[in-house]
């Protein structure tokens, strides 16, 4: 089936298998490999994207359900060469080890800060509870979120 959706502000089309996830369509059909595929069961958050402005796991959205909707991926955060403040904060804080979890964490953090510009540590913990870092770099990730919040 053919789906049409807006990704990072631009219209795209893809031919999808009916049972495939938005994550698969983004990565394999649409050329947006930023969202990562790890667990495919909603446990790790590495596939986090915004669907109509709402933070979701792209692995748990049917590609067909995104037909006619807006998706923002990590690729859509930077303005040209200018990194998004959250991306810059992750770089500056050294919050990236292997980097596999980073796109999901960046999208989830950008989502948090869009709603709450000065989150408490508990609020950060809660907002990022669906994003796992297998390198366990959580202390630096927290530094990055605090840095981005005060940027």
């Amino acid at each position: 089936m053919r789906i049409t959706l807006r990704i990072n502000g631009e219209e795209h089309q893809a031919d999808c298998w009916e049972g495939e996830s938005l994550l698969f369509a983004l990565r394999e059909k649409l050329g947006f490999p930023g969202a990562k595929n790890a667990c495919e069961q909603g446990e790790c958050g590495s596939c986090s994207v915004l669907l109509d402005g709402t933070l979701v796991c792209a692995c748990l959205v049917l590609a067909a359900q995104a037909d006619g909707h807006e998706v923002t991926t990590v690729e859509g955060l930077a303005e040209g060469e200018q990194l998004h403040p959250v991306q810059q904060a992750f770089v500056d804080a050294g919050a990236v080890q292997c980097g596999f979890c980073t796109p999901g964490l960046v999208v989830a953090t950008a989502d948090l800060l869009s709603r709450n510009t000065s989150p408490s540590d508990d609020e950060i913990r809660e907002a990022l509870s669906g994003n796992l870092c297998r390198c366990t770099g959580y202390a630096k990730i927290f530094d990055a979120v605090r840095r981005a919040a005060s940027a």
């Binding site: 709402t54 979701v56 796991c57 989830a108 509870s129």
Partner: peptide, 9 residues
């Protein structure tokens, strides 16, 4: 339930 991502959907 789950995480923010799960509760949103």
């Amino acid at each position: 339930v789950g995480s923010p991502q799960i509760r949103n959907r």
